[in-house]
Amino acid sequence: MKVAGKIAAISAISALILAGCGKSGADTATFSTAASAPSLAGWGDASADLLNAQGEKTGEVALQDAPEGILMRVSISGLSEGWHGMHLHQVGDCSDGADGFKASGGHINPEENEHGLLNPSGYEAADLPNIYAGASGVAAAELFNTKLSLSDGGPLLDADGFAVVVHENADDHMTQPIGGAGGRVACAAFSLGE
Rank of each mutant, 00 (worst) to 15 (best):
G122W: 09
V91T: 15
P110Q: 02
S104A: 15
V165G: 09
P110N: 11
N130F: 05
E168V: 07
P110S: 03
G100F: 02
D93A: 10
S149K: 07
V164R: 11
G153Q: 00
T146Q: 14
A159M: 05
N145Q: 06
N109M: 13
N119K: 13
S121K: 15
G137E: 02
S149Y: 07
L156R: 04
L157V: 08
F144H: 09
D152K: 07
H115Y: 11
G97T: 04
P155R: 09
G100I: 09
G105R: 08
G134P: 12
E112M: 14
C94N: 01
L157F: 02
G153H: 02
A159Q: 12
G137M: 03
S104Q: 12
G116I: 03
K147Q: 15
D127V: 12
G100W: 14
D99G: 09
L156F: 01
L143C: 01
F101I: 01
E114G: 05
N145W: 09
G153K: 01
I131D: 15
I108H: 08
V165T: 15
K147S: 14
L128H: 09
A103T: 12
I131Y: 08
L143S: 04
G116C: 07
G116N: 06
G97H: 01
A133Q: 10
V165F: 08
G105I: 03
N109W: 13
C94A: 02
F162L: 04
S136G: 15
D96S: 05
N109S: 14
S95H: 09
S136F: 07
V164N: 10
V166D: 00
S95P: 08
A126G: 09
G153W: 03
G161R: 10
E114F: 12
F144G: 03
G92R: 05
V164C: 09
S104C: 11
A159D: 10
N113R: 15
K147H: 11
F162C: 02
I108V: 14
N119F: 11
F162T: 01
L117P: 00
L118F: 12
E114V: 03
K102E: 13
G154V: 09
A159P: 02
G116Q: 00
S151H: 05
H107D: 15
G92S: 01
G122H: 15
F144C: 06
